[in-house]
Simulated scan of single mutants.
Amino acid sequence: MQNVENKVIIVTGASSGIGEETAKVLAKNGAKVVLSARREDRLEKLATEIGENAAYLKSDVANADDMKNLIALAKEKFGKVDAVFANAGIMPGGNMSELKVDDWMGMVDINIKGVLNTMAAVLPEFIAQKSGHIIITSSVAGTKSVPGNAVYSGTKHFVRAMLDSFRTESVLEGTNIRTTLIYPGAIKTELLNTIAPSETKSMVEDFYKNVGLESDAIANAVLFAVSQPDNVDISDMIVRPTREV
């Protein structure tokens, strides 16, 4: 696809779901992908499936050094970095009155700090070359209030406000860095596995099973954003089932 072939694109959360499918779709369209996740066996399997245009590093987005090493691997293997898809995320869920503080902090570490660590690692490259593309998985929960998922929703609102502000900074600084926020609705991924068993979880799982979209819906959205001419920035994309409220 135009403006995708030979681009070097980093994908975090690549061991399953949206990240895995996006890596496959990008590689199928000629990109070189650098895969990040904590489950090395799955990364190795995916990289083997994709072939010579894939590299991987067992890494945790909550660890700043891991993200620096990921950028270094991309440059060592493919000579550059053109885009990063900051996709890793967790969603334990639950009312705040349940005081699941460890879950709150886990979401802050992955959904917020993980994105910031990824950006901090790649921005020196993008600024120096005066080009680049930062794509982040937010959520429809980042566009509204979500009772029962307040902290998760808060992390996704943070990502939305932060990247929008950064986009303006990039324009003013003349660094030509494109930004894209993708807001998935009900997508069939492992994200629901991080929610503790409950009646609410069972209802959500039934909805996802009957209505939810496959991960390729988001993968194709990422492909669309990446494939645009360099002077076109697809800033926000909500992708959800037609039947989702």
Rank of each mutant, 00 (worst) to 15 (best):
residue 201 K to L: 12
residue 196 A to M: 07
residue 65 D to E: 11
residue 181 L to H: 00
residue 136 I to Y: 00
residue 195 I to W: 05
residue 181 L to I: 02
residue 190 E to A: 14
residue 234 I to P: 03
residue 218 I to K: 13
residue 152 Y to C: 11
residue 157 H to K: 03
residue 49 E to L: 07
residue 58 K to T: 01
residue 87 N to D: 00
residue 91 M to A: 12
residue 190 E to C: 08
residue 143 T to N: 15
residue 180 T to H: 08
residue 8 V to D: 09
residue 173 E to H: 13
residue 55 A to Q: 02
residue 230 D to I: 07
residue 64 A to I: 03
residue 159 V to C: 14
residue 144 K to W: 00
residue 157 H to G: 04
residue 158 F to A: 14
residue 221 A to Y: 01
residue 165 S to R: 07
residue 63 N to L: 00
residue 159 V to I: 10
residue 182 I to A: 09
residue 194 T to G: 00
residue 82 D to W: 04
residue 150 A to Y: 09
residue 120 A to S: 03
residue 6 N to C: 09
residue 209 K to V: 02
residue 194 T to Q: 11
residue 69 N to H: 11
residue 50 I to L: 02
residue 177 I to F: 07
residue 244 E to W: 02
residue 146 V to I: 11
residue 228 Q to L: 12
residue 187 I to R: 05
residue 46 L to F: 06
residue 91 M to Y: 10
residue 168 T to A: 03
residue 149 N to V: 01
residue 64 A to T: 05
residue 220 N to K: 12
residue 237 M to R: 03
residue 168 T to R: 04
residue 155 T to R: 08
residue 197 P to A: 08
residue 168 T to Q: 13
residue 189 T to A: 12
residue 73 L to A: 02
residue 217 A to N: 07
residue 72 A to Q: 10
residue 133 H to D: 07
residue 148 G to F: 03
residue 54 A to I: 04
residue 20 E to R: 15
residue 58 K to C: 01
residue 222 V to Q: 07
residue 159 V to R: 05
residue 202 S to T: 12
residue 124 P to S: 09
residue 116 L to R: 06
residue 55 A to E: 01
residue 10 I to M: 13
residue 236 D to Q: 15
residue 243 R to N: 13
residue 38 R to P: 13
residue 132 G to H: 12
residue 60 D to M: 03
residue 17 G to A: 12
residue 140 V to Y: 02
residue 162 M to Y: 14
residue 116 L to C: 01
